[in-house]
Amino acid sequence: MREAYQSDLRHLVDDLVDMASMVGSALEDATAALLEGDLGLAERVIAADPHIDERQIDLDSKTVELLARQSPVATDLRLLVASLRMSSSLERMGDLCAHVALVARRSHPELAVPEQHRAQIQKMSDLAAAALRDAAVVITDRDLALAAQVEKNDDELDDLQQQIAREIGKGQDYTNTQIVDLTLLIRFYERLGDHAVSLVRRVGFLVTGDAVDTLHQSTDVPEF
């Protein structure tokens, strides 16, 4: 019985990593659709988002069942509690990828991102994707040193968001639609980074038992 229980806990971790992989693919495809004007790819990202939602529902159901059936304590309890929060963050990351794809679809056949911002948006996407990959490693290995690096690297995403926002504010060569789309897009990518930070902080709670600072900008992520 104990071996089966431990196997169930390991499967929860595997499910979280699988969700992270699904979100990573969605992020890569959404950015490609956005920058290349690939309508078909945008549609696939949007259509795939409910599957990420379903994975969250399934994972949370397993977690609640283990909580009810096993009455876990100590580290096992923290794992189950953290799992519920991490699955929620991953589901929101999937939603944000779908939002990027929706901008790409709405702008088609035009490109939503002006030429002067394409490299910056690609960089924001790359940073968010790297943060998500590192977060998956942190979830698997409980690597708190890497978790700290994810938090540190998130500052670069924040800086890029602010840089683009300043350039939009100064520029005169944007349509109203471009201003709205760019403002939304940089917010989406910045929020992806925040959710990655939230993931690694939940692992910190799992390992140390220290409460997550819910007043911290990068862990108390609003619904967006």
Rank of each mutant, 00 (worst) to 15 (best):
A211L: 12
H108A: 15
D38K: 11
A68S: 08
D158M: 00
A104K: 09
P50E: 08
D181N: 12
S25N: 12
A47I: 05
K170Q: 14
A30R: 04
D159N: 12
K152L: 10
L182I: 10
A131H: 09
P222L: 04
R133H: 14
G169K: 06
D126N: 07
M22D: 13
L199K: 02
H117M: 11
V17Y: 01
V45G: 10
H216G: 03
K123G: 01
Q162W: 07
Q70S: 09
A129C: 00
H195W: 01
A128Q: 04
L41E: 07
K170V: 07
R106M: 11
K123R: 15
A128D: 04
D155H: 09
A42N: 02
L192C: 04
G193Q: 11
S88K: 12
F224K: 10
R187D: 06
M124S: 02
P109A: 12
A104H: 08
Q161D: 08
Q56R: 14
D173T: 11
E110S: 14
L199D: 04
M22S: 13
L127W: 01
A26H: 11
V103M: 06
D126P: 00
T177M: 06
Q70T: 09
L79M: 10
S21D: 14
G24E: 15
R69F: 01
G40F: 07
D220V: 09
S87V: 07
V103I: 15
D14K: 06
